[in-house]
Write a protein that binds this DNA or RNA. Sequence first.
RNA 1: UCCCUAGUAGCUCAGUUGGUUAGAGCGGCGGACUGUUAAUCCGUAGGUCGUAGGUUCAAGUCCUACCUGGGGAGCCA
Length: 484
Amino acid sequence: MYNQRTKIKALLSSEATHFQTTVMGWVRSFRNNQFIALNDGSTNNNLQVVVELGMLDESNLKRITIGACIRASGELLPSMGKGQKVELKASAIEILGDSDAETFPIQPKRHSLEFLRENAHLRFRTNTFGAVFRVRHALAFAIHQFFNSKGFVYMHTPVITGSDAEGAGEMFRVTTLPIDGSAPRNEDGSINFKSDFFGRSTNLTVSGQLEGELAAMAFSEIYTFGPTFRAENSNTPRHLAEFWMIEPEMAFYDLEDNANLAEEFIKYIIRYATEYCSEDLAFLAQRLEEEEKALPQEKRSGMGLLEKLDFVVKNHFERITYTQAIDILRESNHNKKKKFQYPIDQWGIDLQSEHERYLVEKHFQKPVILTNYPAKIKAFYMRLDENCPPDRQTVAAMDILAPGIGEIVGGSQREERMDHLLRRMREMHIPEKELWWYLDTRRFGSCVHSGFGLGFERLVQFVTGMNNIRDVIAFPRYPGNAEF
RNA sequence: UCCCUAGUAGCUCAGUUGGUUAGAGCGGCGGACUGUUAAUCCGUAGGUCGUAGGUUCAAGUCCUACCUGGGGAGCCA
């Protein structure tokens, strides 16, 4: 048996000392030919391994370089130094894997996030990314725990989809046909997909929602949690071409039930992270604080990461309708002084980022749930509100806006009435023939139901305080980039 | 995709109104050091100034195009 070791996290929190143990990990620094800071990823904190003088000969001592992988055995003792409680007095050190000091890119100093992104295969070995990805793991685990505890069924919706009718975004095509122009063609010159792998045109999914609705019409409450793909040329710190999305779908939930669940969900996930990732979050909070010191006063958030998370957990999300939001924005001094790039003048316009930010960061200073948007700017499957004033038709949509990152949740009560749904699909040119299976849910036992979608990376961004979404997914995909 | 901005040593940066041989810290390498904490001290190597054109007696510095990064916008999660 090879894996006979104790994890560093366990040793650092050990009450007992004076016992023999073995650790394996990667060297973070080596000082004074004597002190190895060793990390095995179980925690951001390093174990100090003390090398007695003369224990290793000159040539082996030289092999203890930053990034090298070693096994150390010895006695765990109270530390004689000040920076740590315990340390390992080594009686044997074996170098498992050398790391050439001249070419290993990660130095014991502060690197820019951009540089580390170019070294994404090695950036896990830094404090920042160690913390980020342990938090990411904890959040994923908390999501399953939350839904499982409520009796939701975890559905795996397809990654390859035949439907391209949702209009949620540009899609990546999936095909085994040759791309050199020799693919079979129809008479009109378009590609004939009859001979393609699936016998039809297929794409990578942009959303599992429609399939999720099918499952909700049997299990009552389901959720999806999987990768999603958008072929949009988006170059922002909030967008990826490949990202993970959580999409719960619930029968017998109206819009209010839906918003209640989303709020409870977000608070649960954050509370879980603050409870189980306190060390990593404390590190990230400190990192963020130092980063903000370099910014001019008006750009600082004013609230530390930990306070922000605590604040979100403890306060009710503000709930207002789109119409109320327009009134607030129109009457705001900001608008009257013409400080918006896009002034608010009429009902029906889509809100811009600056408007959302004003509502969340200036007016309410907390997360906001915006509901009942104009039907014209929302998707076909959202339920038409009843008794709307003329020319002010709205749908039962809801967006949750979070400080710092904007829209974190988008959801709605779904249109369960066949006649309304068909009318909306025709208005918006959604081909009903292709979605026959979706429409079948409205034919056979339709019911009030709702759901929402949440971008996992945006949640990780919010909790870790990382500004760029490319730094919260291990190997980010975005226009012009698919390294690793 | 559009607007703004940046690209100088392995990394983080300085480089004046265009003017001699382009600098520093960290890292690397060589050495010193038996309680260090991004260790410290001494020494040392390391650069086609993003790429291609142009202006000029002279370009790291000015102009144009392209590439790459960052910020903002749009699309959205």
